[in-house]
Amino acid sequence: MSLRSQLLKGVLEGCILSVINRQSTYGYELSLRLQEYGLSDVSEGSIYPILLRLQKENLIEGTMQKSELGPKRKYYHLTEDGENALREFMEQWENIKLPVDNIINKGGETR
């Protein structure tokens, strides 16, 4: 896997953890939320391999619940490990966001 897609995957994982942390949700709704936030480049289906991995790593858990409209859906919520992983992601992101922005902007200004 290229570094670029590695990076994207890591970021996407963090975003998914963050959305689930705000409110427990199911696959389709999760993909809508991500698109609402502007991640429209991410194809809808690509969340499912990530959801599987997060479950395997025991960061999220799914439970079958009846939704308001009837059909049963698998709602995800964070486990304790997941909450820790999210906190870690937020710290790392905070540490990398500003420097990267600075580098990119300064880089553009060089003569």
Binding site: Y26, G27, Y28, E44, Y48, L51, L52, P71, R73, K74
Partner: peptide, 17 residues
């Protein structure tokens, strides 16, 4: 178990889409 759960999720997603 995991296989059928994810297949079910894909199906629900596809039906909504």
């Amino acid at each position: 178990q995991q296989t059928e759960e994810v297949l079910f999720e894909l199906l629900e997603h596809l039906l909504e889409a």
